Computed example of a mutant assay.
Amino acid sequence: MLMNKNSGPASGEAKLQYGPNGFRVLRAGQHVFCAASGEAIPLDELRYWSVEYQEAYATPQLATERLKP
């Protein structure tokens, strides 16, 4: 995870830029929302995302389902 100088502790939804090996915090926050389920995902638990679609997923099953053609 890469953090910029403006990404200190904050509450609410974070804005992230997803990369192939991690993500960059664009706006500080405590969580992001799963694109498939709408569930809040704490940043320290975020493990699954799409670089192409710039979306986060709560579980590998939701990511797989969302990314099916």
Rank of each mutant, 00 (worst) to 15 (best):
S7A: 15
D44M: 04
E55N: 11
S7I: 03
E52D: 15
E52M: 10
L2D: 14
M1H: 09
Y53S: 05
A40I: 02
A28I: 10
I41V: 03
L43M: 03
F23R: 09
M1T: 12
P9N: 04
S37N: 04
R24G: 10
A56W: 01
E55R: 14
L67T: 04
D44P: 01
N6H: 14
P69G: 04
G19P: 08
R66E: 06
L16G: 07
L62E: 14
R66Y: 11
Y18E: 01
E65R: 11
A58F: 10
A35K: 01
P69T: 03
Y18D: 00
T64E: 14
A35Q: 01
Y48G: 01
S37F: 02
Y48V: 02
A63H: 13
A10H: 08
G19K: 13
E52Q: 13
E52N: 08
L62A: 13
P60M: 08
L26Q: 15
P42G: 06
P20G: 07
H31Q: 10
R66I: 01
H31S: 11
R27H: 14
P42V: 05
L46N: 04
N4S: 09
K5Q: 12
P9G: 00
G29R: 09
L43N: 04
K5P: 07
K5T: 14
E65I: 13
M1I: 12
S11E: 14
S50W: 00
L16S: 05
P69W: 03
Q30D: 15
M1Q: 04
A36S: 11
W49G: 00
L16P: 06
S50K: 02
P42Q: 06
S50Y: 01
L16I: 06
G12V: 03
A40E: 15
L16T: 05
G29C: 10
L26R: 12
G12A: 05
S11C: 08
H31G: 03
N21M: 07
Q61M: 12
S50R: 01
P69I: 01
A35E: 03
V25S: 09
F23K: 06
Y48N: 02
A36T: 12
V25I: 15
A36C: 05
N6R: 14
V51G: 05
Q54M: 12
P60L: 11
C34I: 04
W49K: 00
L46A: 02
Q61N: 11
V32L: 07
Y53M: 06
A36E: 10
L43D: 03
L62M: 11
Y53G: 00
F33G: 13
P9T: 00
L16N: 08
W49I: 00
F23L: 08
L2S: 13
A28N: 10
V32F: 06
A35S: 08
L67S: 03
A14L: 05
